[in-house]
């Protein structure tokens, strides 16, 4: 599928990358949120995106699932060129991702269960499977007892866990988690991260964006990509 063969020119880029960014820039009203990003992520990698507020962490995740279009450059997901993806195939692309949004994006007048089930309903799964799978994911995130609750009645940490449950329920190959431990205390943050790590161990590629560097101490083996003002400042392999 992938017809860009930069790997021939650049031996550092591996052929089996699941995510590739070539000179990606994103401008909002002329101002760069991302500037000339080159990135190559292998399947099963754990990527930690750090950097100060406003650095472009969220923007980097958003261009991956096409919530935002890049201003310049190319992105390949599993060999698919995002610039060429048709609107009818966009949903299929997005089903490869499990997203934890920085602002959760839980639907307030739908129950916890309904919020999580939505992903599988959208993918056209059978009702029996949906019921089984949603309850299973809610159990692993310890939210099964609140399945009938509405999001506004939950604490921040509980909402965060629902958001993670929703990201995992579709068994995506890539997890994009934007500030998944945002406003949580250390214990809750660790719990949420553990859910994601658990899923990562099954082979999923995970990208976590956070300015909370303490998360790095939690025995994560992966890469830390530090961005400031839209450019990659430093890449470090952790542990």
């Amino acid at each position: 599928m992938g017809n860009i063969t930069n790997s021939d020119m650049n031996p550092e880029i591996k052929k089996n990358s699941i995510i590739r960014l070539f000179n990606v820039s994103k401008r909002y009203n002329g101002k760069f949120a991302l500037k000339d990003i080159n990135l190559d992520i292998e399947p099963g990698e754990f990527i930690f995106i750090s950097g100060p507020s406003g650095a472009g962490k969220s923007t980097l995740l958003k261009v991956l699932y096409l919530a935002e279009k890049v201003s310049e450059g190319q992105i390949l997901i599993d060999g698919m060129n995002l610039a060429r993806i048709s609107s009818s195939r966009l949903p299929l692309l997005r089903r490869r991702f499990g997203m934890v949004f920085q602002d959760f994006k839980l639907i307030p007048n739908r129950t916890v269960y309904e919020n999580v089930a939505l992903v599988l309903e959208a993918a056209g799964e059978k009702p029996d499977y949906i019921r089984k799978k949603v309850m299973q994911v809610l159990r692993t995130t310890e939210m099964d007892k609140k399945a009938k609750a509405l999001p506004p009645t939950l604490s921040g940490g509980e909402q965060q866990r629902v958001a993670v449950a929703r990201a995992l329920v579709g068994e995506p190959s890539i997890i994009l988690a934007d500030e998944p431990t945002g406003s949580l205390d250390a214990k809750s943050a660790q719990a949420v991260l553990d859910f994601i790590m658990e899923y990562h161990k099954k082979g999923a590629t995970v990208l976590v964006a956070s300015h909370n560097l303490h998360l790095l101490e939690s025995s994560v083996r992966g890469r830390n990509i530090e961005i400031t003002e839209g450019t990659i400042k430093r890449t470090a392999t952790m542990l």
Partner: peptide, 16 residues
């Protein structure tokens, strides 16, 4: 609006 936005982001088709 939020629901529609979320549905789009999690990969729902326009028909859905």
């Amino acid at each position: 609006k939020l629901e529609v936005e979320v549905m789009r982001l999690v990969g729902a088709t326009e028909t859905f």
